[in-house]
């Protein structure tokens, strides 16, 4: 039993449409009948206990995980086995990981230029220009010749965000981007994400940072056991959760 609302952004195009999506890992039913529509420029936060399938859900959007049933449409392209479709979608959807996943054997600048040069055939000089611009935007322009291992966690995550932005995606996925960070560094990464949201980027964020959800999200989705249990605007979600499972979760997570 779920509570659903329509997208709160009026008269915008749909950029992601998931319909009847089911996924199994062997016999384990990890995503159950997921229906999700995301409008352009919408900011969605997905929360829930571990093992609820939130990461699996967003990883299905860029085909890092494969769904067995249902359809996923991203920017009008159907996500199926066709590798051209998959690569096309991945170039329009950026992803930021919990473990940053920067390439340790390349400098920061090389990390950022890698995809534009090899996936968009951009000349190296232009790619460097774009990279430097995004590095300035996330506030790490002076680190561009260092290696990831020489940066702090917060700096690495900001580089990871800049790296995804270099491909000019129209949608950004965040998979618990601050969960591996020291508390002091969480703010610098969240600030970058808030600035990104302010520019109108469509964002889907799996996170435990409830204050971020409250201030930035257009919709908060709560998942448990592979299904969407409740989704609502942040105020309605946090102030008056309607499903008992949501209430239980919120009482645990907001108590300290």
């Amino acid at each position: 039993m779920t509570v659903k609302i329509e997208s709160q952004i009026a008269s915008e195009e749909t950029v992601i449409e998931m319909s009847g999506v089911n996924k199994w890992y062997g016999d384990f039913h990890v995503l159950k009948n997921i229906d999700l529509t995301v409008a352009k420029g919408e900011r969605i936060v997905i929360c829930g206990p571990s093992g609820s399938g939130k990461s699996t859900l967003i990883r299905c959007i860029n085909h890092l995980e494969e769904h067995q049933e249902g359809t996923i449409n991203v920017n009008g392209t159907l996500l199926n086995e066709n590798s051209k479709n998959i690569t096309q979608i991945r170039r329009e959807v950026g992803m930021v990981f919990q473990q940053f996943n920067l390439f340790p054997h390349m400098t920061i600048l090389d990390n950022l230029c890698f995809a534009p040069v090899w996936a968009r055939n951009m000349p190296r000089a232009k790619a460097e220009e774009v990279a430097c611009r995004y590095l300035e935007r996330v506030g790490i322009a002076e680190q561009k010749d260092k290696y990831p291992g020489q940066l702090s966690g917060g700096q690495q995550q900001r580089v990871a965000i800049a790296r995804s932005l270099c491909m000019s995606p129209s949608i950004m996925l965040f998979d618990e981007p601050t969960s591996a960070l020291d508390p002091e560094m969480i703010k610098e990464v969240l600030d970058v994400m808030i600035e990104l949201a302010d520019t109108g980027m469509t964002m889907i964020c799996v996170t435990h940072e409830m204050s971020f959800a409250r201030s930035v999200a257009d919709r908060v989705i709560f998942m448990d056991g592979g299904e969407i249990v409740e989704e609502n605007t942040p105020d309605a979600f946090f102030d008056s959760p309607q499903v008992d499972r949501t209430q239980k979760f919120l009482s645990q997570i907001l108590s300290h």
């Binding site: 860029n62 890092l64 690569t87 096309q88 991945r90 170039r91 329009e92 959807v93 950026g94 992803m95 990981f97 473990q99 996943n101 920067l102 390439f103 340790p104 054997h105 890698f114 995809a115 090899w118 996936a119 968009r120 990871a160 790296r163 995804s164 491909m167």
Partner: peptide, 26 residues
């Protein structure tokens, strides 16, 4: 770590380029 190939693939880089430039050097 599998996160390396995932990050490269998520950027839209082909599997071949990922193996040649990200995996094999490391």
């Amino acid at each position: 770590p599998s996160g390396q190939t995932e990050a490269a693939l998520a950027l839209g880089v082909t599997r071949t380029h990922t193996i040649v430039f990200v995996v094999v050097p490391q």
